[in-house]
């Protein structure tokens, strides 16, 4: 074991990790935003909203993410004549792809709230917005937090797929240093440790949130 290869390259790895985080944060926030719109459309009784959103969700959930990244990076320039840089291609792929997963988590969370709750709120004179804000969403969010956090962790791990088009995020940089120094054992062990620690922290945060919720309200 020679950890010098890691210590010497810390600034280089850190740069990659920052890019990984940037990617994950944009993918998650963009995915959730688009996911909210999709979930609303999926819950709508209007056919022109429901069907396109449903097809969208099933389409992307039926594809591997890596293929979507390839498509955006290699095929979009062919059709549009404009090439996308690596970062944009990856970010857009992640957002359109992860939105389909986030929308399903959001939808099932909202649907987990019994219809009678909506009826009670509406019967008291609340508008659809007030019903969502005060009655449905507080219950739905509590139900969907564990699945949300789990999926955020998955997105964070999936950012490593960006290496396929040469984006120099964390894992790609490990890969580059290994090509130069031939220290696979140390480098990939280190990479595993970094992913493990960060993802475990996410899991712990979710558990703490659940415990806090349990203390507050008795469902």
């Amino acid at each position: 074991m020679d950890i010098d290869v890691i210590v010497d390259n810390i600034p280089f790895f850190l740069g990659g990790l920052i890019l990984t985080f940037k990617l994950a944060v944009i993918a998650i926030s963009g995915g959730i935003f688009l996911g909210i719109l999709l979930a609303q459309a999926r819950l709508s009784s209007r056919a022109w909203l429901y069907y396109p959103a449903t097809i969208y969700v099933h389409f992307f959930r039926g594809l591997p993410l890596i293929l979507v990244i390839f498509w955006l990076y290699f095929l979009v320039p062919v059709f549009t004549g404009h090439s996308l840089n690596e970062f944009s291609a990856v970010v857009i792929s992640f957002i359109v792809y992860e939105a389909s997963y986030f929308s399903e988590i959001l939808r099932s969370g909202i649907q987990s709230v019994p219809a009678g709750q909506v009826m009670a709120a509406r019967a008291s004179g609340m508008t659809p917005f007030q019903t969502a804000r005060y009655v449905v969403l507080p219950q739905a969010i509590k139900n969907m937090v564990p699945a949300m956090v789990t999926h955020c962790v998955v997105v964070f791990q999936d950012t490593s797929l960006a290496y396929v088009i040469g984006l120099r995020e964390f894992l790609r940089r490990i890969n580059l240093v290994d090509a130069r120094e031939a220290r696979s054992v140390e480098l990939y062990f280190f990479a595993g440790l970094v992913y493990f620690v960060i993802c475990s922290l996410g899991g712990l945060l979710s558990q703490r949130f659940e415990k806090k919720q349990l203390k507050g309200a008795h469902f």
């Binding site: 019994p114 009678g116 709750q117 009826m119 009670a120 709120a121 019967a123 008291s124 004179g125 609340m126 007030q130 005060y134 009655v135 507080p138 219950q139 509590k142 309200a217 008795h218 469902f219």
Partner: peptide, 28 residues
């Protein structure tokens, strides 16, 4: 018009007090 349901439909994430005051504050 007040309505009372077979399965109560109280809001489980709110106290009894908040259940009763929600509509008077937000709607009334």
């Amino acid at each position: 018009m007040g309505m009372v349901f077979q399965h109560f439909e109280l809001y489980p994430h709110m106290t009894v007090m908040d259940n009763i005051t929600l509509a008077p504050i937000r709607v009334g």
